[in-house]
Design a protein around this nucleic acid. Sequence first.
DNA 1: TTGTAAGCGTTATCAT
DNA 2: ATGATAACGCTTACAA
Lengths: 327, 327
Amino acid sequence: MANIKEIARIAGVSVTTVSRVLNNHPYVSKDKRTAVLQTIEQLNYTRNMNAVHLITGRTGAVAVILPYINSFYFSVVMDGLAQAALAAQYRLILCQTNYVPEEELKVLDMLRNKEIDGVIIVSTALKPEVIESFTIYGPVVTCQNSGERQFSSVYIEHYAAFRHGLEYLYGKGHRRIGYCEGRQNGSSASIRQNAFQDFLAEKGLLFDPEWMIFDCMREEDGAEVARRLLDNPDRSGRPEAMMISGDHIAAGLIIEARKHGLKIPEDLAVMGFDNQPIGRLLGITTIDNQLYQMGEAAFGIIHEQINGSSLPVTRKLDYRIIERSTV
Amino acid sequence: MANIKEIARIAGVSVTTVSRVLNNHPYVSKDKRTAVLQTIEQLNYTRNMNAVHLITGRTGAVAVILPYINSFYFSVVMDGLAQAALAAQYRLILCQTNYVPEEELKVLDMLRNKEIDGVIIVSTALKPEVIESFTIYGPVVTCQNSGERQFSSVYIEHYAAFRHGLEYLYGKGHRRIGYCEGRQNGSSASIRQNAFQDFLAEKGLLFDPEWMIFDCMREEDGAEVARRLLDNPDRSGRPEAMMISGDHIAAGLIIEARKHGLKIPEDLAVMGFDNQPIGRLLGITTIDNQLYQMGEAAFGIIHEQINGSSLPVTRKLDYRIIERSTV
DNA sequence: TTGTAAGCGTTATCAT
DNA sequence: ATGATAACGCTTACAA
């Protein structure tokens, strides 16, 4: 494969001149420029980017850490990231880590290795202090509140958003409230759990551990919850309302509940989370949490940080309740 | 930042020895090895991978071309790819191209540039001959039948699968059959369209262009189709059955149709495609097309090709009809 | 405007 | 078992 030296030789110029042409630098005469371009064309030459990366210390690539791509939440964030990266001519390395800390550390090591210019952490099993310890090697942006830690983040206030949703249910007269969540130990999941428990405590509402259900990942899990709740024939032994993390779970619950003749919201009110298309279809009242914008913003921040500004940035995104017909 | 030379100097050995330790080569005495490892630890050293990439001509990265990640189809394929890549210690560069040919060409150019070791094309706007022209730079695998073209592919037979589904509807006695599709010009979409039209022609069934509906991307589009069909008050002016590409579209159609009092499948039979969780939830009869396996297989092939075997490979995946309750 | 030459940080080759 | 030294292919002072 041809290299810059060969181009220089054949075009009858120096390698510097070829490099200048390659990088659109000024101070190249028209003659030489066309000579170089012609030779490049003739030999079907392209730069070996690894050499460029080595000498410049940059790669134009950013790694994205997330547990699994095949979920509404993460694929929307990824969409936002990808569109922003495309516009900025950056490459995104998708690192699906299944929340395995060793794999996540390998990705952060790529920053030390100079394989990438920055890391975006959408969701992680790593502790903030571990993440912070890698910021000396390059910019890191997380999609969870970094608190006092010295790295950038863009986030939605899950605590406030969730409480807001619960207030909404409360305002509609509901007092016996249940709660569905995905992984119990997800970092935003535990924030939501706190919001839920704090809310019940403050309002003096009944807290029934049976009504707090974890590991709801798929539509079918929501249906399972409906069946479990309906096992109790006594209506007053069931919640009047459910706060559900993930509209697809809410959809599963609603569809199964209706199969059993329950009226939504009369017999059971349902509040979703994430504002997914399926929620719109079923008329689920939900909380929009700007996932696409989160991806866009995260990339925007890392892009700024790569190009100089080294102070950690924190960006808080809005959420809003979308009133439909299930509450 | 420390480099290999400095490690060598401080550990009192040559750079070659350090390199040997780094790469777990034999023929290094225990003493020197520990000396090197200690110095590495002390100076918190890691290799600059760009130098490694330059000299070895490999990067351990593979690019993935797809139009948008935020869809069931692509995120499941991506999941399969990502799990396989993780297991093989490879990096995946996610190139969301929106079907813009220029962007897709840029990705293929990364192969010329030596930035990546291979390209996996899940779906593209590029013509097969264009893709073929890049195979001289490195392995390329597509998720569409490559036909006679000289590059590898792993695919499901959309034509056969779709016809099989249509036969199934026919077998259940349905004669007036409609069809919903995503982008009209997607490569597998046009194969499915051919299957549909060929089937109607061969069976001598009525072909009503009004019953062939494109651009159904989201759940809500399915609902819109239901409303459009119901506009016709004359039952015999409506299809008896719909073949629908994408269970989420089928879900939208079914939910909306039921709202209007239609019984599924009595008043309208619905056959889905993709075997999505929402289809399971709603009991949609559908066709499973092994998307996760497709991703896994695509990575497996590119991995083989990168490590030697240069003959194009073609792998055909099975599909199967999942009988539920909407037909 | 152009060219020479010194890096960038590795691995590979070939001695010893 | 170990080490000099030559690549790898580019950018960038610095000189002219």
